[in-house]
Simulated scan of single mutants.
Amino acid sequence: MAYHTKKNGVVELQSLNFPKRAQFFVSAVPEEKQGDWADHLRGAAKMLGEKYRLKVGLSGIIEGSLPIGGLSSSASVIICFLSALCKVNGIHLEPMEMILTAKAAENSNHHA
Protein backbone atom coordinates (compact mmCIF):
# COMPACT_ATOMS: atom_id res chain seq x y z
CA MET A 1 0.00 0.00 0.00
CA ALA A 2 1.33 3.40 -0.98
CA TYR A 3 -0.18 6.43 0.73
CA HIS A 4 0.30 10.03 1.73
CA THR A 5 -1.19 12.13 4.51
CA LYS A 6 -4.31 14.22 4.02
CA LYS A 7 -4.59 16.86 6.73
CA ASN A 8 -8.24 17.59 5.89
CA GLY A 9 -9.28 14.25 7.39
CA VAL A 10 -10.39 12.66 4.14
CA VAL A 11 -9.59 9.03 3.49
CA GLU A 12 -9.32 8.34 -0.21
CA LEU A 13 -8.58 4.78 -1.27
CA GLN A 14 -8.08 3.24 -4.62
CA SER A 15 -7.54 -0.42 -5.33
CA LEU A 16 -5.74 -1.61 -8.40
CA ASN A 17 -7.85 -4.76 -8.20
CA PHE A 18 -11.27 -3.07 -8.14
CA PRO A 19 -12.75 -0.24 -10.20
CA LYS A 20 -14.48 1.91 -7.57
CA ARG A 21 -12.68 4.50 -5.44
CA ALA A 22 -13.63 4.84 -1.79
CA GLN A 23 -13.76 8.21 -0.09
CA PHE A 24 -14.92 9.20 3.41
CA PHE A 25 -14.11 11.49 6.32
CA VAL A 26 -12.08 9.74 8.98
CA SER A 27 -14.13 11.48 11.67
CA ALA A 28 -17.49 10.62 10.06
CA VAL A 29 -17.36 7.13 8.61
CA PRO A 30 -20.68 6.25 6.95
CA GLU A 31 -22.85 3.94 9.08
CA GLU A 32 -24.27 1.79 6.33
CA LYS A 33 -22.28 -0.62 4.24
CA GLN A 34 -21.67 0.48 0.68
CA GLY A 35 -21.40 -3.07 -0.60
CA ASP A 36 -17.96 -2.55 -2.11
CA TRP A 37 -14.39 -3.71 -1.53
CA ALA A 38 -13.73 -0.94 1.02
CA ASP A 39 -16.46 -1.90 3.52
CA HIS A 40 -13.96 -3.70 5.77
CA LEU A 41 -11.69 -0.67 5.70
CA ARG A 42 -14.50 1.72 6.61
CA GLY A 43 -15.42 -0.65 9.43
CA ALA A 44 -11.83 -0.68 10.67
CA ALA A 45 -11.61 3.13 10.55
CA LYS A 46 -14.85 3.35 12.51
CA MET A 47 -13.63 0.95 15.19
CA LEU A 48 -10.33 2.76 15.51
CA GLY A 49 -12.17 6.09 15.70
CA GLU A 50 -14.28 4.84 18.60
CA LYS A 51 -11.13 4.34 20.69
CA TYR A 52 -8.87 7.11 19.39
CA ARG A 53 -9.40 10.55 18.00
CA LEU A 54 -8.75 10.48 14.27
CA LYS A 55 -8.04 13.82 12.64
CA VAL A 56 -5.72 13.05 9.76
CA GLY A 57 -6.80 11.14 6.68
CA LEU A 58 -4.78 9.58 3.92
CA SER A 59 -4.81 9.03 0.23
CA GLY A 60 -3.72 5.55 -0.67
CA ILE A 61 -3.46 2.99 -3.40
CA ILE A 62 -3.79 -0.66 -2.50
CA GLU A 63 -2.60 -3.48 -4.65
CA GLY A 64 -2.99 -7.06 -3.57
CA SER A 65 -1.71 -10.10 -5.38
CA LEU A 66 -3.45 -12.37 -2.87
CA PRO A 67 -6.49 -14.25 -4.10
CA ILE A 68 -9.68 -12.25 -3.62
CA GLY A 69 -12.14 -13.66 -1.14
CA GLY A 70 -9.55 -15.38 1.01
CA LEU A 71 -9.88 -14.47 4.68
CA SER A 72 -6.18 -13.77 4.96
CA SER A 73 -6.11 -11.35 2.03
CA SER A 74 -8.74 -9.01 3.46
CA ALA A 75 -7.20 -9.24 6.94
CA SER A 76 -3.78 -8.25 5.62
CA VAL A 77 -5.24 -5.31 3.71
CA ILE A 78 -7.10 -4.17 6.84
CA ILE A 79 -3.93 -4.39 8.96
CA CYS A 80 -2.00 -2.50 6.31
CA PHE A 81 -4.66 0.25 6.22
CA LEU A 82 -4.94 0.42 10.02
CA SER A 83 -1.21 0.78 10.50
CA ALA A 84 -1.13 3.61 7.94
CA LEU A 85 -4.06 5.34 9.67
CA CYS A 86 -2.35 4.95 13.04
CA LYS A 87 0.92 6.29 11.67
CA VAL A 88 -0.57 9.49 10.21
CA ASN A 89 -2.55 10.09 13.43
CA GLY A 90 0.33 9.35 15.81
CA ILE A 91 -1.42 6.35 17.37
CA HIS A 92 0.58 3.39 18.61
CA LEU A 93 -1.37 0.14 18.65
CA GLU A 94 -0.02 -3.01 20.22
CA PRO A 95 0.23 -5.79 17.59
CA MET A 96 -2.49 -7.79 19.37
CA GLU A 97 -4.86 -4.81 19.41
CA MET A 98 -4.17 -4.26 15.72
CA ILE A 99 -4.98 -7.90 14.93
CA LEU A 100 -8.15 -7.91 17.02
CA THR A 101 -9.38 -4.66 15.44
CA ALA A 102 -8.72 -6.03 11.95
CA LYS A 103 -10.43 -9.30 12.80
CA ALA A 104 -13.47 -7.54 14.22
CA ALA A 105 -13.71 -5.32 11.13
CA GLU A 106 -13.44 -8.33 8.86
CA ASN A 107 -16.08 -10.29 10.74
CA SER A 108 -18.59 -7.49 11.21
CA ASN A 109 -21.56 -7.52 8.85
CA HIS A 110 -22.40 -3.99 9.91
CA HIS A 111 -20.40 -1.14 11.39
CA ALA A 112 -22.28 -0.78 14.66
Rank of each mutant, 00 (worst) to 15 (best):
L71Q: 09
I91A: 09
L58D: 04
L58C: 07
M98L: 15
A75K: 15
G64H: 08
A75Y: 06
I62V: 13
G57S: 03
L100I: 15
M98K: 14
L82N: 03
K87M: 05
T101G: 02
N89C: 07
K87E: 15
I99V: 12
K103R: 14
E94N: 06
A105H: 00
F81G: 00
C86N: 04
L100C: 08
V77W: 00
I61T: 15
E63Q: 13
L100Q: 15
E106V: 12
M98T: 11
C80D: 15
I78F: 01
E106T: 08
L58F: 08
S72R: 04
T101Y: 03
C80N: 12
M96H: 11
E94A: 13
I99W: 00
S59Y: 03
G70M: 10
C80I: 01
V77A: 11
S59C: 12
S72L: 04
I68P: 06
M98W: 07
L58G: 01
A84D: 07
I78Y: 02
K103Y: 08
S83V: 01
I62M: 07
C86F: 00
L93R: 07
I78E: 04
L66H: 10
I78M: 05
G60M: 08
E97T: 12
E63A: 03
L58V: 09
I79E: 13
I78C: 01
N89L: 07
M96Y: 06
L66W: 02
P95W: 05
G69R: 04
H92R: 15
L71P: 02
I99R: 03
E106S: 11
S73N: 08
I68R: 10
S76Q: 14
A104N: 11
L82C: 02
A75C: 05
L82E: 05
I62T: 06
L93G: 05
A105P: 00
S72D: 14
S72N: 10
A84Y: 02
S76D: 07
A84K: 11
C80S: 15
I79S: 08
L66K: 12
V88I: 11
L100N: 09
I91R: 03
A75E: 13
S73W: 03
I91Y: 00
E97A: 15
G90W: 00
E106Q: 13
I61F: 02
N89A: 05
L71A: 14
P95A: 08
L58I: 13
L85F: 01
M98C: 13
L100S: 12
E63S: 11
C86A: 14
A102S: 12
A105W: 06
G90N: 14
L66Y: 05
S74Q: 13
A84L: 03
E97C: 05
E94T: 06
H92I: 12
S74C: 08
